[in-house]
Design a protein around this nucleic acid. Sequence first.
DNA 1: TCACAATATGTCAGCTACTGACACTTGGCA
DNA 2: TGCCAAGTGTCAGTAGCTGACATATTGTGA
Lengths: 224, 224
Amino acid sequence: MVQQVAAPVDRVVGPVAGLRQRKKQRTRCQLLEAAQKLFLRQGYARTTVDEITAAVDVSQRTFFRYFANKEQVALALMEDGADDFVDYLRARPSHENPLQALRAATRETWESRDISEPGASPATAALEIFQLIECTPTLLAAYLHRLAEQQQLIAEVLAEREGVDPAVDLRPRVLAAVFSAVGRTAQHEWAAGVAGRGVDVEDLVQVLDRHFDQLGPALTADWR
Amino acid sequence: MVQQVAAPVDRVVGPVAGLRQRKKQRTRCQLLEAAQKLFLRQGYARTTVDEITAAVDVSQRTFFRYFANKEQVALALMEDGADDFVDYLRARPSHENPLQALRAATRETWESRDISEPGASPATAALEIFQLIECTPTLLAAYLHRLAEQQQLIAEVLAEREGVDPAVDLRPRVLAAVFSAVGRTAQHEWAAGVAGRGVDVEDLVQVLDRHFDQLGPALTADWR
DNA sequence: TCACAATATGTCAGCTACTGACACTTGGCA
DNA sequence: TGCCAAGTGTCAGTAGCTGACATATTGTGA
């Protein structure tokens, strides 16, 4: 099975970039939208690739040229934020310590998404996808895997930022691991808690903060 | 797809427990062994379920009654340790603080495995499987998913141990997340580092300790 | 000890994800 | 205009996984 990267799709291509490129991006976009709609309406497992391709009127083979597998479509819907995050992290002022920078970059990522999102409710889409992932074992597994890769990248950025050698110094990797784990725990809680009431990015940011604030106390000698 | 638990196989059944039970355990065991051999010899992806069942001479359908999917066979080879861990954690003296207890339980888990293992090299088998998982994306994803479940359990045990309400107090979940993440990072490093030289459990325990020791420094204000 | 119930297993038919090979079309460019 | 490269469709096939149903095999109460 061994996953392999599907066509890179020449990420973030400028306004005009040849008809060919534009067509490609459009197809990809259509596939994403169709998939999202179907997944959210009838669930991930009950949606076949054939249904998605039928909605866009392309062959199944084409689908698999854009996405390595069915999971990747679902994940792609979340992924825009992940790339931004690393950029934000790199851009944090150097006087911030690693954990501060990570926390700030997280906040920036979510807040920027809140504004830029075009649809009616801002982060609602992200949340819906997130919940879909959370309650679909296969998808969750793939998502966790993606996070692990992301984590590696974060460690590298941290090492570079602080000017330490990532081959020797364990701190970048350890912190990246801790950060990812706590961040995910927070997201998990948030997604579970939102349930009925409306989706609010400010809400998520607060939940994240509360979790990170517990990092010290949790590691502390005595809980009682 | 939605994973579902295959037959529970009535875990750790006593010496004699009816012919039926024994037969079942034997079949399961044979499947595990055949799978392990094939996976290690020719890789996970290049091993088909049919090959495994052929080696044991049962039908494919039977295979899927024992394991929800192909991944689960591979994971099952690691999993014995995971169950032990929780038992060890529960048994740690209550004067230890949470992190101490977690670290001690980890050490116990690995050291016990070192002795009890029957084969020639003790933890060699575990390592080989671990490396197999590590370099097979599909498997790694499933493994991470399993870890996440395990993490939840750990959080519950911690909350109980410390007498805090897991619904309100974030510390158990946060610590469980941190612990899992750092533990995995350590395992990852270890598996990567062992490569040529022989496998040694003492080695792994040391790597784990070094990583946990970096937890404080990594979260510390200034790295420079 | 002999049924009968419960449980394992096998068989078969079928769905769906995914892939390689090859032919065809279309956009980019000299 | 005409060629090359890149994108797409078609087809045939493999592999994971499932439901339904028939068949054995084991446990058990009369």
